[in-house]
Amino acid sequence: MTTDQLLFGLGLTVALAVGSQLLASWLRIPALIVLLPTGFVAGALTDDIDPHRLLGATFEPLVSLSVALILYDSGLGLDMRKLRGDTRRIVVRLIVLGVPLTMACTALLAVPLLGMSAGAAVMLGAILVVSGPTVVGPLLGFVRPAERVGRILLWEGSLVDPIGGILGAVVFGGVVQRARLGSGEHVLQFVLSIGVGLGGGVIGAGLLWLLMRRLRFGEVLASTAQLAVVVVVAAACDIARDDAGLLAAVIMGLAVANLKSFDLPEHRPVSETLVQLIIGLLFISISATITPRSVADVALPALGLVAALVLIVRPLLAYLSTRGTDLTTGEWCFIGWMDPRGIVAAATASTFSVQLAAQGIGGAAKILPVAFLVIVATVTLYGLTATPVARRLHVVRAAS
């Protein structure tokens, strides 16, 4: 590829990402509803924005580090003081119950619906346990639900993304090795990855404290230093254990936002502008890698999977997670109607689908297009219905 072609492809990707977000703002709809089909159509019409062609082997590491920055920024918005009582209990249940329930149901459905092997089905299940702040945050910004409900959903999305990413990496290793999934060895591998992420987050928080509180750089340099620390620590954790950097990024964000010694200013050092640009670029790039033929082959069964996840699995999880708490019927019903998939699902599917297909795992080539369709369907469904559903359930925050 020539320099001119590379520049054109990168420029076109940025133009599509920002243009899609501007159009979504004008239409007053969540940006993801425009970003996903735009990237898919552009990828079908031209090879100029194919990220593998533009960036080669650097694409996947760049995606991982970009997601780490997004999760760090989401961690900055999580206030530990408000995570108490029933709110904390519900968030813990949504993750502890939600990850195995969603993974198991997805895997069981994927075998008959999509004709996948057991290994590919379990891999898809691990990928689709995530939700994420990249989609939940913007949707909640449109809906403005009751504060407690919004807080629960933001915490769930921010915490389940790194856990899901690590789980996906562990399951991928098990499928490739043809080992028995769920064995003690794989539980140990998962725990080790969590440990690396937690350790990296603690070390990163210490470095951030040193840079922000002891050395006292100016505002611009302090923000630049934060970006550098997050990238370096996330990269180091990912080298040690796949996707452990995502958990480290969230831990660093939580530490900076909640420890008094940081005394974080009101504005976020990782600006919303940067985060929004990253989100746009990632969704455009990953969507561009999916071919129309691969989507057409799995469209109907994938929609059947979406229907089961939306109408059965998520409502059941919401009921089990809120049972015995003081949430109203409207509040738990709204939690049961909000489970979109986001960039971590797209990124892990993009990473693992091709590698598993190359290993000869039956049905592995379907993982990425199915994940893409689940993301598109859930984002579109929740994006268009969340506001009227919230109003019907009387969980919309009063206008200030």
Results as ranks from 00 to 15, higher is better:
residue 279 I to N: 06
residue 295 V to A: 01
residue 203 I to E: 02
residue 298 V to I: 05
residue 213 R to G: 02
residue 188 L to F: 14
residue 296 A to C: 10
residue 287 S to C: 08
residue 231 V to D: 11
residue 264 L to D: 03
residue 214 R to Q: 13
residue 244 A to C: 08
residue 308 A to H: 09
residue 294 S to I: 00
residue 201 G to D: 09
residue 206 G to H: 05
residue 186 H to C: 06
residue 286 I to Y: 01
residue 288 A to P: 02
residue 207 L to D: 07
residue 196 V to M: 10
residue 284 I to T: 02
residue 295 V to H: 01
residue 187 V to T: 11
residue 216 R to L: 07
residue 205 A to N: 06
residue 276 Q to L: 05
residue 267 H to D: 12
residue 274 L to I: 12
residue 232 V to M: 12
residue 242 D to Y: 05
residue 291 T to N: 04
residue 307 A to N: 10
residue 234 A to P: 04
residue 230 V to K: 02
residue 197 G to N: 08
residue 266 E to C: 07
residue 190 F to D: 13
residue 298 V to F: 00
residue 258 N to L: 08
residue 194 I to R: 10
residue 284 I to V: 13
residue 307 A to H: 10
residue 221 L to I: 08
residue 219 E to M: 13
residue 246 L to M: 14
residue 242 D to F: 05
residue 236 A to I: 13
residue 291 T to V: 08
residue 243 D to Y: 09
residue 215 L to F: 14
residue 194 I to K: 06
residue 304 G to V: 01
residue 294 S to W: 00
residue 236 A to P: 03
residue 274 L to W: 03
residue 191 V to A: 15
residue 219 E to A: 14
residue 284 I to M: 04
residue 190 F to R: 12
residue 299 A to K: 00
residue 222 A to H: 05
residue 260 K to M: 13
residue 275 V to S: 04
residue 241 R to N: 13
residue 206 G to W: 07
residue 211 L to V: 09
residue 280 G to C: 03
residue 308 A to S: 10
residue 214 R to C: 14
residue 206 G to K: 08
residue 221 L to R: 07
residue 233 V to G: 00
residue 268 R to M: 08
residue 254 L to Q: 11
residue 291 T to P: 03
residue 222 A to P: 04
residue 244 A to T: 11
residue 266 E to S: 14
residue 240 A to K: 12
residue 265 P to M: 02
residue 234 A to N: 06
residue 201 G to H: 08
residue 217 F to Y: 14
residue 284 I to K: 01
residue 262 F to R: 04
residue 274 L to C: 06
residue 239 I to L: 15
residue 245 G to T: 11
residue 268 R to H: 12
residue 242 D to P: 03
residue 294 S to R: 00
residue 304 G to T: 02
residue 289 T to Q: 00
residue 290 I to Y: 00
residue 248 A to G: 07
residue 237 C to D: 13
residue 223 S to M: 03
residue 302 A to D: 02
residue 226 Q to S: 10
residue 194 I to M: 14
residue 220 V to I: 14
residue 248 A to V: 03
residue 279 I to L: 13
residue 188 L to W: 14
residue 200 G to A: 06
residue 274 L to P: 00
residue 239 I to S: 14
residue 278 I to D: 00
residue 186 H to G: 04
residue 204 G to N: 02
residue 274 L to N: 03
residue 284 I to N: 01
residue 256 V to M: 12
residue 280 G to F: 02
residue 250 V to F: 12
residue 279 I to A: 06
residue 275 V to I: 15
residue 251 I to G: 07
residue 233 V to W: 01
